[in-house]
Simulated scan of single mutants.
Amino acid sequence: MTVTKADIVREIYMRYDGMTKTQSVEAVEAILRLAKETLISGEDLLLSGFGKFNVRDKRERKGRNPQTGSELMLAPRRVVTFSPSGILRDKVNGE
């Protein structure tokens, strides 16, 4: 099962009595907006106990069209990678 943004909002709303549904939506949106802005600017995002999102630059490289088999050059681009924290990794592995 995939957890959606709506699921996160619902959990926050249900767990914290003092928050309205609107405040829960605004809190989730604010966190995601800050995370996106950080990554777009090229900075890494570290969430202690969860993991680190890194922005990496990929060079231009040779690629291949899988349908036709013809070679082509893939443009340089930036990608976001994620490395889980040791705490998260251990919990996912049941340790």
Rank of each mutant, 00 (worst) to 15 (best):
M1K: 11
M1P: 08
T2D: 00
V3Q: 05
T4P: 00
T4A: 06
K5Y: 02
K5I: 05
A6G: 08
D7K: 10
D7W: 06
I12C: 02
I12L: 11
I12F: 04
M14T: 02
R15L: 04
Y16I: 14
Y16M: 07
D17Y: 00
M19S: 01
K21L: 06
Q23R: 02
A30S: 12
A30Q: 01
L34C: 14
A35F: 07
K36A: 09
K36I: 05
L39T: 07
I40C: 05
I40V: 15
D44V: 03
L45A: 07
L45K: 03
L46W: 06
L47N: 01
L47K: 01
S48R: 12
G49C: 09
F50M: 00
F50L: 05
K52A: 03
F53S: 01
F53W: 03
V55S: 01
D57Y: 10
D57H: 07
R61A: 08
R64V: 13
N65W: 11
N65C: 11
S70D: 12
E71A: 15
L72F: 15
L74M: 14
R77F: 03
V79I: 14
V80E: 00
T81N: 09
F82P: 05
S83V: 09
S85T: 00
G86Y: 13
I87D: 13
I87L: 12
L88V: 10
L88T: 06
N93E: 14
N93K: 12
G94Y: 11
E95L: 10
